[in-house]
Design a protein around this nucleic acid. Structure first.
Lengths: 209, 209
DNA sequence: TTTTATTAATTGAACGTTCAATAAAAAAAT
DNA sequence: ATTTTTTTATTGAACGTTCAATTAATAAAA
């Protein structure tokens, strides 16, 4: 079996196996033996290619976030009418495309999100991603409304997107991408259509928190 | 030391210690020894009162969800103007009151949410809670708009609330309750103010997903 | 034959649970 | 009012298991 140039193949194979294993038993019960079995290799190979279990987990999270970023970027380049609104819609589409919105990906994503609360290396990856989403949203909203409103709109849409993922990951039937996308797009529609009406009391925003 | 009637005291003490321990090192690295040390008791006592580690974790999640339900109910009974809108605002206030919106609670909540993906007993608790929130929201929205719109509005607001908790649990500065509440209330405002305007394309909802 | 890829066996640490012993408090008996 | 018995609360050490990492051996490719 040993052939030269196996490294990229094995890495990809093991990352995919990690997601499958997390989907199957959850991050808490994932062992290197189980991941290796999924990939059809021995456990020792994980230390060889990733330096250990933690290295593989980090690589898996990085892969998910990279795929997400790619999906957003891809959707954005397919735009014909390049308006701010179209760009916002593309961001939403990208976020519910996430390469493929499968159960393993959604569950792994949430598992890592929770895990990153106490693992600085994962937290850093997560934060970079969060900030990118927020900045992207804010840059577009700012073309259409004052800064304060744009910030509020960005926080709202970001919360909706993450909330839909969160709920989708837990629901027994899995994340229904079409339904989620519809909710997010409807939210965007409301955020844009109310930007020129007078603010009611609960809209008042004095400073960013 | 042994006094009679310690059970309710110890149970409360251990549940609180569990949240503190999860806040400190995360659910993955929580050991019975660490929880016991936080509570100032020995490790064996956990099995005695909760039947084991899992029993304590389940009791802790149940406590958080109970506190949340109580907070919502309390906010609702303090209402003077009992309009559907006021009730929706009370639900939001309750969800960002959650007895006390502390860091340990937010982190424990998210940790359990992730964990419940693969623990049926926890998933059941979570689902009961989810459905209660959704039903409460939907019942109020239905007073103000057609059923289809009410369902969409409920899904949106539920996603915003959970998304804000999710993001708050991860952010290094912790969950800022005031800022989160403001976002949620602004979302509610938009959901209500657009209910009588014509729907744009992305608002169209044919069937529930 | 040297290098690369991989395995299988092993190690050592960490963990949850169990359980016998103990100590205080309460109840009963003297 | 003492003493004895019983109940309740708690400890801490021992046990068995599980797991990640390491190591030495193996086998194919270059």
């Amino acid at each position: 079996m040993p052939k030269v140039g196996m490294e990229p193949i094995r890495r990809q194979q093991l990352i995919k196996a990690t997601m499958a294993a997390i989907d199957e038993v959850g991050l808490a019960d994932v062992t290197v033996a189980r991941i290796a079995r999924h990939a059809g290799v021995s456990a020792g190979i994980i230390s060889h290619y990733f330096g250990g279990k933690d290295g593989l987990l980090e690589a898996t999270m990085r892969q998910i976030l990279t795929d997400l970023g790619d999906a957003v970027a891809a959707n954005r380049q397919e735009l014909r009418h390049d308006t701010p609104r179209a760009r916002l819609e593309a961001i939403i589409e990208g976020n519910f495309d996430r390469s493929q919105v499968t159960d393993p990906v959604a569950k792994t994503w949430l598992a890592f999100w929770a895990s990153s609360m106490h693992k600085p290396r994962l937290a850093r990856l997560q934060q970079i991603n969060d900030r990118r989403l927020y900045s992207n949203l804010c840059a577009q909203f700012r073309c259409l409304m004052p800064l304060d409103e744009a910030r509020l709109a960005s926080r709202t849409l970001a919360a909706v997107i993450d909330g839909l993922w969160l709920r989708g990951a837990l629901t027994p039937e899995g994340l229904h991408a079409d339904g989620a996308r519809r909710v997010a797009l409807a939210t965007l529609d409301r955020l844009l259509s109310t930007s020129d009406r007078p603010l009611s009391t609960s809209d008042a925003v004095t400073t960013a928190s």
